[in-house]
Write a protein that binds this DNA or RNA. Structure first.
Lengths: 134, 134
DNA sequence: GTCCTTGCAAATGGTTTGCAGTGCC
DNA sequence: GGCACTGCAAACCATTTGCAAGGAC
């Protein structure tokens, strides 16, 4: 049975993740962690993040060709995401105001570990102005 | 104003996409298209797929470090996806049995072009057997 | 004829991996 | 002391891009 060890590196990654609400990517997290532990490698950050995702502690927002963004699941703060295809900005969307009723329609025997509801689109800054220059 | 041209390559990509219900990735589509048009390049397939996604004709299922899967939106067949983290299999989930009620909670001015509901988890084949060998 | 598209191939860049040394339990 | 974890750097591979030639309108 796999034994998970507590290390300085992992604590640092978790702390950085909990402290930020900007859905950071691995490189940014790496930079922050290095502020305290200068020799931590990107590889370790990725390995730690993978473990956190597997444990369900952290959610991901994945986009092809772009860095995965990580989202720490704060207690009792369920939310979904609105992702701008233009600038990549990610907005939180309150889950309570966006109810989703999973009924029995999943493949038999499928074990759900995470439900993702993502709204893809364009944020105000990236929406073409209807009334401006061409 | 941008003018979109009809080309043999684009028609082929669309046809392949419409004919398959297996959520193929770009490489697979490329292989199929080459069956008819041997010189079509992967780059062209990607460019065409990008255009189709922008037009809302095709949906994507994106996973970090793995090929994006493309899903042609067949008429009146709204569905969500269940994605296995083990083998990468993608199952369709009927949208009607999985209602999702978007209320006004999105960022003001955010233009939604696509709503994604994804169930991440493990399919029966990838679920650790509770009663088998260690 | 214009200029959007394509093919090719090289570049990009996020993520993964092998390995030898390190340190948690 | 065993073995999970780490740092480093190289490897991977999906995706993007530059450019000259080709084709749709």
């Amino acid at each position: 049975m796999t034994m998970v060890r507590q290390t300085r590196q992992r604590q640092a990654v978790i702390e950085v993740l909990r402290a930020s609400r900007e859905h950071p990517d691995a490189a940014w997290i790496h930079g922050q962690v290095r502020g305290r532990l200068p020799h931590v490698s990107l590889g370790t950050v990725y390995r730690t993040l993978d473990a956190l995702v597997r444990d369900g502690v952290v959610l991901t927002i994945e986009r092809a060709g772009q860095a995965t963004r990580y989202d720490y699941r704060h207690e009792g703060e369920d939310h979904h995401h609105a992702v701008c295809r233009g600038c990549g900005a990610i907005f939180d969307v309150d889950a309570e105001a966006m109810p989703c009723i999973p009924v029995a329609a999943l493949p038999p025997g499928f074990q759900v570990t995470e439900v993702r509801l993502e709204f893809m689109g364009l944020c105000p800054d990236c929406t073409p102005q209807p009334n401006a220059e061409s």
